[in-house]
């Protein structure tokens, strides 16, 4: 198993970097989106994506290929975001007030529905109500659709902790989102 992973994903010494490149191509979007969901600002996200993939590159040998790669990446992204939050985030000036290009991260074309974009924006805003631990649970459970035991494993916390965080996270998220909506004048209370 392990050696097969090395063949496919190729950790550092003496192996082709093409494999890492493939991994990067396949997972860039996931890592990017995960970091944004974890509250990393648009102006900082590229740096952190780079950081995550730097760690990925160095730890490729640790990855067990018999398991899905996303939780592993999520763990790395989570730790990166966590360290970043403690050290840097306050330094970054919020340059753009809201709703502009740099908050909206995708290569948007006319085909991307404005409503969808607005909804995604609201999700990121709503997540702002949560600390990192609660965010992580909500992201993994309600956005990624993972089951609680897996989440517990990914985050290294007891299952019951996941349940309780999920409850709290949902409540806070919903409260904030509905408040934002009210403020936007959308009559979508409840």
């Amino acid at each position: 198993m392990r050696h097969e992973a090395n063949r496919v994903l190729g950790p550092p010494p003496g192996t082709s970097s093409i494999d890492f490149e493939t991994l990067f191509r396949q997972q860039f979007s996931y890592v990017f989106r995960t970091l944004r969901r974890l509250g990393v600002r648009p102006a900082e996200v590229d740096d952190l994506v780079q950081e995550v993939f730097t760690v990925v590159f160095r730890r490729l040998a640790d990855y067990d290929p018999s398991r899905p790669i996303e939780p592993w990446l999520f763990g790395i992204a989570f730790r990166t975001a966590s360290v970043h939050r403690r050290t840097l985030s306050r330094r970054i000036v919020e340059v753009f007030a809201d709703g502009d290009d740099f908050r909206d991260d995708d290569a948007t074309g006319p085909e991307v529905a404005a409503a969808d974009r607005q909804a995604r924006h609201l999700v990121l805003e709503g997540l702002e109500a949560l600390d990192l631990d609660h965010r992580a649970v909500l992201i993994l459970h309600d956005i990624e659709g993972q089951v609680v035991p897996k989440i517990a494993e990914t985050l290294g916390v007891p299952i019951n902790t996941v349940y309780s965080r999920l409850r709290t996270a949902r409540a806070k998220f919903a409260t904030r989102v509905r408040r934002l909506r009210r403020r936007q004048g959308e009559e979508e209370v409840r």
């Binding site: 989106r33 991260d105 949902r170 979508e188």
Partner: peptide, 27 residues
Amino acid sequence: DIAQLFAAERRAPRPSALREAGVFARL
């Protein structure tokens, strides 16, 4: 209503190729 928001988030398109290439270049 919350479920719909999350569904939209799951549909998020890929970030721009430019951005991706930029990060890759830095790696």
